[in-house]
Amino acid sequence: MPSDMETRIVSLEETLAHQTRVIDELSDQLAEQWRVVEQTRAKLDRLTERFLSLEEQSLDAPAITKPPHY
C-alpha cells in the first residue's frame, strides 16, 4: 500500500505533466497567432501602399468637366 507521501508525489507529478502539456499547447497557439498577426500586418502594409499609390494617381487626374456637347 503506497504511503501518503508517495500518493502526494504521484499527484504532483501528474499535475506537473498536465501543466507542462498545457503550456506547450499554449505556446504552439501563441506562435500560430503571432504568424497570423505578421501575415495580417504584411497585408495591411501592402494595401496601404496600394491605397497611397492610387490616391496619388487620382490627385494627378485632370478635373472633370462637362463634355463639349452640353
Rank of each mutant, 00 (worst) to 15 (best):
L47M: 12
A17V: 04
E6M: 01
E56K: 01
D60K: 11
R50F: 01
S58K: 04
S53C: 13
A61Q: 14
W34K: 14
A63V: 13
R50I: 00
I9P: 00
I9H: 05
E49C: 02
D24Q: 12
R21Q: 09
E6Q: 02
V10E: 14
V36L: 15
S3F: 07
Q33L: 12
R8A: 09
L52G: 02
L12K: 04
Q39M: 12
T15L: 06
P2Y: 06
E38V: 04
A61E: 02
R8H: 08
L59M: 15
D60W: 01
S58L: 07
E6N: 04
D24W: 05
S3V: 04
R8L: 09
L16Q: 08
D28C: 08
R41V: 02
I64N: 07
L44S: 09
E25D: 15
V36T: 14
I23A: 13
K66V: 13
R21F: 05
E32Q: 13
A17H: 02
L47T: 04
K66Q: 15
D45W: 00
D28E: 15
L30R: 12
T40G: 06
E6P: 00
I9S: 03
D60S: 15
F51H: 12
D45S: 07
R35S: 05
M1D: 11
Q29K: 13
Y70I: 02
R41W: 06
L47H: 06
P68A: 07
E55D: 13
L52V: 11
M1P: 01
